[in-house]
Amino acid sequence: MARVFRNFEELESFVKQERGKGRKIVFTNGCFDIVHAGHVDYLEKAKAFGDVLIVGINSDSSIKRIKGEKRPVVPQDYRVRVLLGLRAVDGVVVFDDDTPLEVIKLIKPDVLVKGADWPVEKIVGREYAGKVERVKFIYDISTSKIVNKIVEIYCGKKVED
């Protein structure tokens, strides 16, 4: 059963326990605001790189700094709950920084996964991971596209990304 880590000590203890069982730790991160088919596919592919998938999600305040005051659409506790319900996810940790660097430094994942839209040299924390994998997106969907479609349907206007 997937679990949420309320602090870094819980996360560190879990990772140590799983490594003690010989399991390969995979880490990825994102906002996961309005979880959609692209997110599910991405997380399933990330999980396939190892045994235990830990997902770092940006806190609400972190998302506001990165994406603006109108985001996130879905509060962090709800985003955590949705991710915990996905079969591929073994654990979720919320981070308040703009990047997950401190989480990555703490757990030193065997595999760090990001989308193929990220050039390797821009992937934060790559130097603390055993290996970096990039996943291609097969769904042409994003939270921004969903929000824009809703606004267009219900308000009759286009919104800039």
Rank of each mutant, 00 (worst) to 15 (best):
Y128D: 14
T28H: 02
G68D: 09
D110V: 03
I34M: 15
E18V: 04
F137H: 08
K70I: 15
E10C: 01
V124R: 11
R126F: 03
V111H: 10
G130Q: 09
A2S: 14
I34P: 12
D98F: 03
D51I: 11
K157I: 15
I34K: 12
S13D: 11
G115Y: 04
V147S: 08
C155A: 15
C31Y: 01
W118Y: 15
L11P: 02
D33C: 04
A37V: 14
P72A: 07
V74W: 08
I25T: 06
G22P: 02
V4P: 00
V132R: 10
V132C: 09
S61I: 05
L101M: 01
K157W: 11
I25S: 03
A37C: 13
L83V: 08
I57E: 10
P119S: 02
D96V: 12
D97Q: 08
D41P: 00
K114R: 15
I104A: 06
E69M: 10
V26T: 06
A2K: 05
R81D: 04
D33A: 04
G30K: 04
G130T: 03
K67D: 03
V147C: 09
R134I: 08
E102A: 12
F95D: 12
G22E: 07
F14T: 00
G56V: 08
A46W: 01
P72L: 08
E44N: 13
V132I: 08
Q76W: 05
N148R: 15
V52M: 04
D140R: 13
D60N: 04
G91A: 10
